[in-house]
Design a protein around this nucleic acid. Structure first.
Lengths: 350, 350
DNA sequence: AGGGAAAGCGGTAGCGCTCCCACGGCAACC
DNA sequence: GGTTGCCGTGGGAGCGCTACCGCTTTCCCT
C-alpha cells in the first residue's frame, strides 16, 4: 500500500537515484525516462516521505511562522497570504504562536523548537528584543520580519513614522489642535516596534506644526478593549481633546466605543483615525491609513523562499499606506475655543 | 556545532539507545542516568532531529490544520486554540489553507499533501463532500472536524439547528412575524453543513409557530460583504421584513451595513441577530448567539491527540451557545400593519 | 540457596530518501 | 582514429534517529 521509492524504481526499471532525479525535476534525465518514472509513481500512488527527504538532504521544505496570535486582523491576513505563497512553491507552514494570553506579557521566544525543523523563519508582527533576534540568527536560517522589523534584518512592512505623520497631518489640516494618540503597551519600547514608530511619527508631525503632544499619548493593549480603555482614560484627563490618532484600527474601534459610551459623537465632537484598513472599518465609518496585510504576507514569504535558494533580496520592502476617509474625521466643531468647557459637549458623563 | 545523539551518548558515557530513552522520558532508565544524559544534552545544546525521529518511528508529532481561510473570526480563533493545545503536548501545527479566494469556489481537497507528514488531521469549519472525507479517511490518520462535521466522524461544534431555533424564537417572542434568514452559499447544500443546519433550524422554528418562511431565505457569501449584499437583495424583494436571523455575525454586520445604507434603523425598523459572538459585536450592538471558538479549537486538538494515542474519545462534542442581547433586536415598531408600505420607514431610498 | 522475573542498558538493523562517485556510451574535437 | 568531455544512469554510503533483541545485574520469592 505505502509504496517507497524502490517500488517506483523497480516498476519503472530504473534506479532509485533516477527516480529521485526524475520526480524532483532535476536535470540529466531523459524526457522519456522521466515520463516513465512519473507514470510508475502515479500508478503506485507514490508520495515521497518528507522525513526521509529531510534527513537525507538537510532541507525540510518547511518554514516557521512565528506570531503572537492569529486572531487579529493584521496577523490573520499576513499568515493567510504567506501560507498561500508557500503552498505555491510546495513549502509547508509551521505555525508557532506563543502568547499565552493577550493580557500577560509573553515569555521569551525559544528558538530551539525550530531547530532542524524549518528552512526559514517568518516573524509576523512581533517586535523581538535584540537577544531574541540574536538567538534566532544563531539558528542559521534565513529570517524575514513582517510588520515589525529588527535592525539589520530583512523586513517587510510600512513606513510607520510616515504613516502616522500622514494621519496626524490629516487631522491637523482639518483644524484640530489637540490631537491625542492611542499607543501600544507602555513596556513596548523597542525602537523598531511599529507602535513606537507610530508614536514618534505622531509626535514629530505635531512638533513640526507647533502643536502640543505632552500628556496626549495613552498607552494600552493593541486591541478593541485596549483602545476603549485608553480612550476613557484620555477623556478623563483631557476632555478638551478633539482628535485621536489610534495606532491600529482595532484600537480606533475601541475609541469609537468609548466615545459612544460617553455620548460623544464622531466626528462632530471627536475625530478618530486609525491604521490598518480593517474590514470592519467600513462598517463603522472609520477613517484609516489602509495597508495591505495579505500582500505583505505574500511578499515576505516569497522573499524568504528567495533567500533559501540563495538569491539576493532587498533588505527592506516598504508597503504604501493610503488615507481612506470613511467619515470619522471632520473639522473641529468649534475652532475658536481652544480650551473647551469639559461639560460643553453633549456628553451625559458616564 | 550541530551535535547528534551519538555526541550526547559519548558525553554521558551511555549508548545512543539510552540517550533516546532518557530524553523521551521512557521507562527503564535510572533517575541518575537520565539526569546525566539530560545534563550532557543541555551542555552540548542537543536538539533531536524531528526528521530522523519521524523516519525511524513513523510518527511526526505534527498535525495538519485544514481550513479554507484564517482571516475570519471563527477560523482564526479555532486555529489559535488548537495550536495552543498542540504546543503544550509538543506537537506541531501544519497549516493548510486552500481556498484560492473567497469569491471562487474551492477546488477539491488533495489529501496527498498530508501523506506521511502528519499524525492526525483537524478540519476547521469546512463542510467536506463525502468523497473528500473518504479520501482523507484513506490516509489512515485520526480525523477531527470542528465547526462543520462529517457523518460518522468525530466532531466538535454547535447544535446549529438548536442555535438557530433559539435565535428565531427570540425574534418571534418579541412579536416579529416576518423573520428572514441570511444563509450561506446556494451551492452549500451538504446536509451536515452548519449553514444548512442553521437554515433548517430557522425554518423549523418558524413552522412550529405557524410563521412563513417561503421567500425569506437569502443565500450569499459567509462574510460582511455577503451579508450586506444579501440584505439589500432581501429588502428589495421584501420591504415588509422586520427581523433577520443571519447565519454568522459577520453576515449580520453586513446586514447592519445594508440597513444603514437605506436609512433603516436597528432595532426600531428591523431587528437583527447573528451567530458567533464576534469581538466586534459589542461594538455594533449586535445581538447574537455566542459560541466559544477558541475553546472548540482546544477541545478538538486535545481529542485528536487522544485519538493518536489510541484513547477513546466521544463521537461528538457539542458546545453551548447563549443568546447575548446587545440591542439589535426589539419589538417590531408596528405589530398591526403586517404589510408595511415600502416607503413607510424613514428610509431616504439609496 | 537457588531460580526466575524484571529492570537497566548496549548493539545494531533499519526507516526512505539524497547525493557523491563511478561508469559506459556517444559526439565532438584535433 | 584516438582522446577528451559530457550526458544519462546505477551503486551505495550515509542522514540521525528508534525499536527490537539480547545481555547483565539486581531483587524477590520459595
Amino acid at each position: 500500500m505505502a509504496h517507497g521509492i524502490v517500488d517506483v524504481a523497480r516498476a519503472a526499471g530504473v534506479s532509485t537515484a533516477t527516480v529521485s532525479r526524475a520526480l524532483r525535476g532535476l536535470p540529466n534525465v531523459t524526457a522519456a525516462t522521466r515520463e516513465r518514472v512519473r507514470r510508475a509513481a502515479d500508478e503506485l500512488g507514490y508520495v515521497p516521505s518528507p522525513s526521509a527527504a529531510s534527513l537525507a538532504s538537510g532541507r525540510t521544505r518547511t518554514i516557521g511562522l512565528i506570531t503572537p496570535w492569529v486572531a487579529h486582523w493584521f496577523f490573520a491576513n499576513v499568515i493567510e497570504g504567506a501560507e498561500r505563497a508557500l503552498r505555491v512553491e510546495d513549502f509547508d507552514a509551521l505555525l508557532y504562536t506563543f502568547e499565552v494570553s493577550r493580557e500577560v506579557r509573553r515569555h521569551r521566544l525559544d528558538p530551539d523548537v525550530l531547530r532542524r525543523r524549518v528552512d526559514g523563519v517568518l516573524v509576523v508582527g512581533l517586535p523581538l528584543e535584540a537577544e531574541e533576534v540574536a538567538a534566532l540568527d544563531q539558528l542559521g536560517y534565513p529570517l524575514v520580519f513582517v510588520g515589525a522589523g529588527a535592525p539589520g534584518h530583512v523586513t517587510v512592512g510600512l513606513d510607520d513614522e510616515r504613516t502616522a505623520r500622514r494621519a496626524v497631518a490629516h487631522l491637523a489640516d482639518l483644524g484640530h489642535t489637540v490631537i491625542a494618540h492611542l499607543s501600544g503597551e507602555p513596556d513596548d519600547t523597542l525602537p523598531w516596534s511599529p507602535a513606537v514608530r507610530r508614536a514618534e511619527g505622531w509626535r514629530a508631525e505635531l512638533a513640526a506644526r507647533g502643536l502640543p503632544s505632552a500628556g496626549l499619548e495613552v498607552h494600552g493593549h493593541f486591541d478593541v478593549r485596549g483602545g476603549r480603555a485608553s480612550m476613557h482614560g484620555l477623556l478623563d484627563r483631557r476632555p478638551d481633546v478633539t482628535a485621536v490618532f489610534a495606532a491600529s484600527d482595532e484600537m480606533a474601534m475601541g475609541a469609537l466605543l468609548a466615545l459612544r459610551d460617553r455620548g460623544l459623537r464622531v466626528p462632530e465632537d471627536v475625530s478618530v483615525v486609525g491604521v490598518d484598513g480593517h474590514d470592519m472599518g467600513e462598517h463603522l465609518g472609520l477613517t484609516t491609513m489602509a495597508q495591505n496585510a495579505q500582500e505583505q504576507g505574500v511578499t515576505a514569504a516569497s522573499m524568504l523562499l528567495e533567500m533559501i535558494t540563495g538569491a539576493p533580496v532587498p533588505e527592506e520592502v516598504v508597503f504604501p499606506t493610503s488615507l481612506v476617509d470613511r467619515g470619522s474625521t471632520a473639522r473641529p466643531r468649534d475652532q475658536i475655543v481652544t480650551s473647551r468647557n469639559p461639560s460643553g459637549g453633549c456628553a451625559p458623563a458616564m
